[in-house]
Design a protein around this nucleic acid. Structure first.
Lengths: 223, 223
DNA sequence: GTCTATACGGTGATAGAC
DNA sequence: GTCTATCACCGTATAGAC
């Protein structure tokens, strides 16, 4: 490299900002590499190339490949969380609203696109060999699980029903979502997000018959 | 190695039998390694060690690692297929029977255990980087997809209903199964196969209200 | 058929210049 | 902070003995 005064003493704040910028950049490169090459063929070299940086920098900021990958998964999760949280913030407090918001968020283009789905499944695929991945999932998904569960409890309560099976209902909806994601990921030609929403809407309508029309009208497009 | 006359001329049949035996042995070792080490860390060395053979033999029978892994996935699929086919053969011709058989088969211990689930997800995780895996899935799951679809069409027909959304119903049940599998795989403490069956039963009961009781009574244990 | 030995490139991580 | 050079190791695949 030619020229520019290389590294004069810089204030701490500036150094910190540079660090977080670089970390973001490298994590983003890691996720891109996972999409392109898969987790098995993602190496420090592919990450560095994707980032337009040297291999050494990645190690400098993350110490080793293993923690880099874990951080990348965390980062991917944060984006997912932000998406559904924004959706929750923008909706009412009625449990139907909250469930609708959570479900719509999951099939939002922002979160339910081929790249994002590939990343999820790449990490899940290694979760058995690297339990840390499953732990991260459990940890970072706990609040969403709680939101869905609470909404189910609340809805049953309002309808004057027993709430003991709320956990089962919540697990059912979330599992259905996961399965629809897998299908969209593996064979996208067999299922679109729009159809996935319709399937989920029917499922919810059956779980909460009193609110069937609300779920259907608000989750199914062109209706 | 000491002793025994090594390789006299053997009849073709015997040679063929030895070949298929070895292939099976190596594929089994591959799947074990995938469970233990994950797909990323599965190497010819781990496979050879698992099989108690040399690395060279694996290459001799499968040419390279890539085709070995593809064959291992095919083999895993065959076991899965055999399981649901056996279940179908053992049941009646009424569509409710067939759907019940397919669903029960999916949560059978034979097929829905931690090792088997780890293998599925390991391959799905790499499917984006190795489209062959997705192709194998599509190819080897086509007949099951057709069975489920036919059963749904048939059931709607018997009930005097429109059959245009049968594909949606079939996709819904199968996606739900996949999602429940993922949950059992990632966080087994949060979901057992028995509960998964119950969730699926409720889903089916909603899809086919006329047969709700039949699905519930036949899929939900202790009832 | 099965093994061992080995070629050859890639891999994660370190050292040290700038 | 970032790079380049380098290390020891591991990966696939081949060659050739038995």
């Amino acid at each position: 490299m030619s020229g520019e005064a290389a590294n004069p003493v810089r204030p701490r704040k500036e150094r910190v900002e540079n660090a977080t910028k670089r970390r973001r950049q490298i994590i983003q490169a890691t996720l891109s590499s996972v999409v392109k090459n898969g987790l098995a063929a993602t190496t420090l070299a592919t990450v560095a190339q994707e980032a337009g940086l040297s291999q050494g920098v990645a190690v400098f900021y993350f110490k080793n490949k293993h923690t880099l990958l874990a951080e990348a998964l965390r980062s991917h999760f944060e984006k997912y969380r932000e998406n559904w949280r924004t959706a929750l913030d923008a909706t009412g407090s009625h449990p139907v609203d909250r469930i609708v918001a959570l479900v719509r968020a999951d099939f939002d283009e922002e979160v339910c696109n081929p790249q994002a789905l590939a990343i999820w499944h790449a990490f899940w695929g290694e979760a058995n060999a690297r339990p840390l991945y499953a732990e991260i999932a459990k940890e970072l998904d706990a609040d969403r699980t709680a939101e869905m569960h609470n909404a189910c409890v609340e809805l049953l309560k309002r309808d004057g029903k027993e709430q003991s099976h709320a956990a089962l209902l919540a697990a059912g909806v979330d599992s259905l979502t996961d399965g629809l994601w897998l299908r969209i990921y593996l064979t996208p030609e067999s299922l679109t997000p729009a159809l996935a929403l319709e399937i989920t809407a029917r499922h919810l309508a059956a779980d909460f018959p009193e609110h069937a029309e609300a779920f259907l009208s608000r989750l199914v497009p062109r209706r």
